[in-house]
């Protein structure tokens, strides 16, 4: 199980990387953490002619406060995010989700940008960033553009990112100080790809009703899922089992074609989506209540 040949470039700057991607758009793939790409290459399921290794671009590894939220450099490792105190204070949901990615040695390499660009529907961060209304900055020769998470994820392993573009930054707006959030997932073994995972954010009004609710789900469709019907249904409701049940029903009604494999059928994933939605909402609401 050894990877096929490729040409290798290790640019030291974003400009250099972008130039390479523009020049070799047909054949180049970006090598970020490599924790998804290299196994595929070892199994010869991926045959990139050329790798642009961006691990040496130190300017892409950072976690910075941004507009009440966070800006994450694309090459921020999950292990860094998991331990970042600014992130824990501003967006604990991100930290909670980063901790769920694989195992420690995987998180030492895996990057937030890689997870977004690879867009595996089973990955945690895409679902979380979708729920957090994140936006992604991509750079190309003509400059940069910003794509909302909503527009970014197109389908199974498919994004709005062009082969000649480099994902450079993830911008995650802050949450109201009174918001509560939670991420829960279920997998066969700890650290395995989740059979379903749910990120929930709840903001409560002064009177304790739900002012705003946001949800993001992984592993229950070809792309991460943002169930807006369920979110709409929750607004103005009182937190509690009745609201969670209704939201969960709306979530699974809206699911389109959950994957089915030996670890979980589509039906079981629907079932889990419902169970975990309720659990995530309850936990987020409890935290919101504590923040109130």
């Amino acid at each position: 199980m050894k990877p096929p040949k490729f040409r290798y470039f290790a640019p030291r700057s974003v400009e250099e990387a972008v130039a390479l991607l523009v020049e070799h758009a047909d054949e180049a793939r970006v090598l970020a953490g490599g924790q998804s790409l290299v196994p595929l290459m070892n199994m010869r399921l991926a045959h990139p002619d050329m790798l642009v290794d961006i691990n040496g671009i130190s300017e892409l590894a950072y976690v910075r406060p941004w507009d009440g939220g966070l800006a994450l450099g694309a090459m921020t490792r999950d292990a860094t995010l998991e331990r970042d105190t600014t992130a824990a204070a501003r967006l604990p949901l991100l930290v909670e989700a980063a901790h769920c990615v694989g195992h420690p040695a995987i998180r030492n390499r895996s990057t937030v940008g890689g997870s977004i660009a690879h867009a595996d529907p089973a990955a945690e961060l895409p679902a979380v960033l979708l729920a957090l209304n994140a936006a992604f900055e991509v750079r190309s020769r003509s400059g940069s553009r910003t794509i909302s998470a909503q527009d970014f994820f197109k389908g199974y392993l498919s994004t709005d990112l062009k082969a000649s573009e480099l994902l450079t930054e993830l911008r995650v707006p802050g949450l109201p100080s009174k918001a509560g959030s939670a991420f829960v997932e279920f997998s066969r073994r700890e650290g395995d790809y989740a059979l379903a995972g749910v990120a929930a954010v709840i903001t409560l009004d002064e009177d304790g009703t739900i002012a705003d609710a946001r949800l993001g789900l992984c592993s229950v469709g070809p792309a991460p899922v943002r169930p807006q019907a369920a979110e709409a249904l929750l607004r103005g409701q009182h937190p509690g089992d009745e609201a969670w049940d209704a939201a969960a029903t709306a979530v699974i009604t809206g699911l389109d074609n959950p994957p089915s494999d030996i670890h979980g059928s589509a039906d079981y994933r629907r079932h889990l989506a419902s169970v975990l939605t309720k659990e995530a909402l309850a936990s987020a609401a409890e935290r919101a209540e504590r923040n109130r």
Binding site: R189, E190, D192, D261, I262, H263
Partner: peptide, 16 residues
């Protein structure tokens, strides 16, 4: 054979 990787043939880890 749908279980030719260690992602798919599930040997218990220290967590299990």
């Amino acid at each position: 054979n749908l279980t030719t990787t260690m992602n798919d043939y599930l040997v218990p880890t220290v967590a299990e």
